[in-house]
Structures are given as C-alpha cells and as structure tokens.
Design a binder for these strands. Structure first.
Lengths: 110, 110
DNA sequence: AATCTATGTCGTATGTTTGCGTCATTAAAC
DNA sequence: GTTTAATGACGCAAACATACGACATAGATT
C-alpha cells in the first residue's frame, strides 16, 4: 500500500489540516487557553494544570511548537512557553476565510 | 495502560477538538469546499473529484456526517450530499470565540 | 564536587486513522 | 426477472497518535 496521500491536495488545505490536527486534542486546546490567561507560563505550571503525566504534556507542547502556535524560551533551569500571537492571527484568518467560503456560497441546501 | 483521557477536559474543549479532528484531513476539507461550490452534490461526483478510492471517500463522508457537517439524502440509486449550514455557522462561532479568547487576552508575550 | 530540580528524549504498549479491496444491498434499466 | 450501477458495510494492513515510565542533561543549590 502507498498510504499517506495528503500531499495530493492543495497546499492551503494541507496547512489548514495540519493546524486543525494540532487543535484536535483537548489537552492542547487547554494548554493554549491556559497560556492565554497565565502570567507565568513556565512548563512546570502547565504540567500542573493539565491532568496528564509530565511526559505527555511535554509531548503536546512540542506538537504546538512544531506548527508554530507557541514558543519556548529557556530561562536557566526552567522553560517559559508563550503563545505566538502572529501565528494565531494567521490561523484565525485561515479558518475564517475557509468557513466563510463554504457557508456563503450558493450551493443547493437540503 | 488506561489511554483515552480526553474526557478529563472541559466539554467545550472536547467538542471543539472533535470538530478540529474532522477538519484535520485535506480530503475532508476538499470535500467541504467541493460541496460548497457544486450544484449537484451526488456521492459519485465527489468521488471523481477526490484523488482517493471510492471506498475511502465514502468513509470520509461518513466522518463528516457523524459530526453533523454534512447531510445525505437518498435519491433513488444515488445519494445527494450537502453542507449543513447551521452546523458550519456553529463551528465558525466556536472557533472564532476560542481564537479570540486566546489572542486578545493579556498574557506575557515572548 | 555532590546533589537536587526542571525539562527533554527514548522506548514501548495500546488505541486510532487511513486507505483500499471485496462483498452486500438496493434501485434503475433492459 | 436478470443485469447493471451506485453506494455503504466489513475486514485488513500500514501508519500514526496517545500515554507514560525510565533515562539523560544541564542549570541551580548546598
């Protein structure tokens, strides 16, 4: 079998799908929400906030970092995580555009 | 191992994650986009539009139906699929709300 | 220098998704 | 009534995601 056919599709759809996939786990959404509200966004604080093991939370943080939603900044022994506001604005635009595109158009509704 | 800890999180995050997951594959996004533009949204037409086997496309359609993004209406031998505009509006609201929530707030940026 | 602490990486078990071929079903066409 | 066509359901294999314990590392504390 060949498998993994995602690159047969338009690049904009691929990017949107990638972002959607990262947002497809409640733990990662909870991390984003927490980062938006807290002042000190130290990795350890996030771990305490999320009901999963430290390792798993760390993994979710790496995922969020991979697509650019958050940044990590080493501060001695600790790591400060924070949202990437420009990336979030970008995502907001992408999603709004797509959702408008498919809801405004004149297709037949049943 | 216990696995599957998604229900440890807020219900709104769970619902949003579920929707995001459905939108996390370019084929499903392509289907949504196609349904928005076409007049006749017969299952067979969708299959021809998507570079995957008929079986796989059918599976993706079931996924989209499962979360309520599309509806299917049997018309003799064929099935007419169409977007559920109210569901899309709902999703648009949910995503916009969440993304605003995490981008407007006053967290420390790095 | 020895120890402690915060964090990341690796390996691993298990569950889930993707993709497709084959079969079943049901309506249309003949 | 038999055949053809459109679709969904079933089953399988490969890939991927989730979750976590154990280990590694590197800065702080003593």
């Amino acid at each position: 079998m060949t498998y993994k056919k995602t690159d047969l599709f338009d690049e904009d759809l691929q990017r949107m799908a990638e972002v959607a996939k990262v947002m497809s786990h409640p733990a990662r959404l909870a991390i984003l929400r927490y980062l938006a509200n807290c002042k000190s966004c130290i990795s350890g604080d996030i771990t305490n906030e999320i009901p999963l093991s430290r390792t798993t939370v760390s993994q979710h943080l790496q995922e969020l970092k991979r697509v650019g939603l958050i940044h990590g900044e080493i501060d001695g022994l600790k790591v400060n995580y924070c949202l990437c506001t420009s990336c979030i604005d970008d995502i907001k635009k992408t999603f709004t555009l797509f959702l408008n595109e498919i809801s405004i158009s004149e297709s037949i509704k049943c």
